[in-house]
């Protein structure tokens, strides 16, 4: 190989390495950057349309019906339910923002969630219930114990749109099987449930938007 050609290859290799490393870094960074956390009420909110089973812990998951990242969250919920089916009441709230047509929320995620045994899929018209639980990111999971006391708030995926073992899922499973929680919060990965220009309907709840 001539010196000129070698220099060209070396130059190309350097540029390529920088571009690829930068790209991969950006992708990983995007994947592990969490969404805005929820600020749920410490006790089960009165008047909620979500079903709360007597004597059982209740889990609420807020989902944007078209968020591709939440597919992993629903998958992980499915995994969770294989071990906690009879120990847990689960509500998955599919938001339908104001102005969206009927059945807008009936996406493949809806079908997926509704198909999980023991899971109740609910249409959250104008995201009232979601805001009641102060969830801001799709895939947000909020867990109340049998007495209606908040025990956990966070996500159940390890990264954005990635299935697999996560701190949130492990905590919930530990709570269901051992009765204790190693962590009470975890990062949640998913699309923002509310758009950048959507004003919070309940300012008092400190609603913020994640971009």
């Amino acid at each position: 190989m001539t010196l000129q050609k070698r220099s060209l290859v070396l130059g190309l290799a350097s540029c390529w390495l920088i571009a690829v490393t930068g790209g991969m870094f950006a992708l990983w960074n995007y994947s592990v950057t969490p969404g805005a956390p929820a600020g749920p009420p410490v006790t089960w909110p009165e008047g909620s349309a979500a079903h709360r089973a007597e004597g059982l812990p209740t889990l609420v998951m807020a989902v944007h019906p078209h968020c591709p990242c939440s597919r992993a969250s629903v998958d992980e919920l499915n995994v969770l339910m294989t071990r906690g089916k009879d120990r847990l009441a689960v509500n998955v709230l599919f938001i339908r923002p104001k102005g969206m047509p009927e059945d807008w929320e009936k996406s493949d995620l809806w079908q997926k969630a509704a198909a999980i045994p023991g899971v109740r899929a609910l249409v959250d018209v104008e995201a009232i219930e979601t805001q009641r639980f102060q969830a801001r990111t799709s895939g947000q999971v909020i867990l109340y114990d049998a007495r209606g006391k908040l025990v956990f708030s966070g996500g159940i995926t390890p990264a954005r749109g990635h299935a697999g073992q996560s701190a949130g899922k492990a905590a919930i499973l530990a709570f269901l099987t051992l009765g204790n929680l190693p962590v009470r919060t975890s990062e949640v990965f998913g699309c923002p449930l509310f758009g950048p220009n959507a004003g919070c309907q309940r300012k008092d709840q400190g609603c913020q938007h994640n971009h």
Binding site: P97, G195, A198, H209
Partner: peptide
Amino acid sequence: VVSPRAWEGVHA
């Protein structure tokens, strides 16, 4: 197929 659009509320 898997993630064609990202959503923020009603904006994609």
